[in-house]
């Protein structure tokens, strides 16, 4: 596989080729009269070392876009590249290995395996890939998310915010080319949510991590450096250096 060995140091990737690119991305569910066009030809790219939010009203196709970009779902037409690897046309096994090597995930809920401790959950992607965790990196990530004294706990013994911090640490530990976060703060109170978003922004700024986040919360989106807006399966607009207010204004404009 060509994708192995591509996982370089974070800082080395800054301002190089985009981490993720989509061309003419189309996704249709069902057939004939009942067909639903979730994506109608999306062209978008996400720069390496950037924190991008995908926004849009309910049913705009933002989650579908993320699933297609991450190789979790197949596309009907168009192309997706993660780095220099084209996803479209890869089999399940190759997609799985690609996710293992290049992609990190943070979901809204049910991020962790209940049978494993926090530390085991963090190390899980590396173990699945059969790689050794870099001890220094592990310490740094754990320090960053402030989980040092929680490592031996099972998920049920952690608060919701702590669980999401474990999920962030797990996504960071394998130094993926891109982290996809799907409503990572959707289940959290505003303080815990702010914490998680700060961690994400810090990891972009300090570690050069590429993050693509789907959210419907203008405040969450304002932590990103760039926000792209989706409506009815099409990319309709984008903002750079957004504030909660500018995102909200844009949303209202789109809903109108």
């Amino acid at each position: 596989m060509t994708i192995t060995g591509e996982v370089g140091a974070w800082n080395a990737r800054e301002n190089t080729a985009p981490a993720v690119t989509a061309r003419g991305l189309t996704k249709v569910y069902g057939q004939g009269d009942t067909a639903v066009h979730a994506l109608r030809g999306v062209d978008v790219s996400f720069a390496t070392g950037a924190f991008t939010a995908i926004m849009g009203p309910s049913g705009s196709g933002k989650s579908t876009l993320m699933h297609c970009l991450a190789g979790l779902d197949t596309v009907s037409a168009g192309q997706v590249h993660i780095g220099d690897v084209e996803l479209t046309g890869l089999g399940d096994k190759q997609l799985t290995l690609l996710r293992r090597e290049r992609i990190g995930f943070i979901f809204q809920a049910f991020n962790l395996l209940p049978t494993l401790t926090a530390e085991q959950n963090i190390r899980l992607p590396l173990e699945i890939a059969g790689r050794q965790a870099d001890g220094e990196l592990f310490d740094r990530v754990v320090e960053t998310v402030g989980l040092r004294d929680r490592l031996g706990h099972k998920p049920t013994e952690l608060s919701g915010g702590q669980q999401q911090r474990v999920a962030v640490a797990r996504a960071l530990i394998s130094k993926p080319q891109v982290i996809f976060a799907d409503e990572p703060t959707g289940n959290l109170d505003s303080r815990s949510g702010a914490e998680i978003l700060s961690f994400l922004r810090t990891s972009v700024r300090e570690l050069g991590q590429t993050i693509v986040m789907v959210t419907h919360d203008p405040v969450a989106a304002s932590y990103a450096g760039r926000v792209v807006f989706l409506r009815d399966g099409l990319l309709v607009s984008e903002l750079t250096e957004p504030s909660p207010q500018s995102v909200l204004d844009m949303l209202i404009k789109l809903e109108a």
Partner: peptide, 16 residues
């Protein structure tokens, strides 16, 4: 179901 999906997303192959 969701646990399995999570593992698959994290890179566990079908045979695994």
């Amino acid at each position: 179901t969701r646990e399995s999906a999570l593992l698959r997303a994290l890179g566990l192959t079908r045979p695994q």
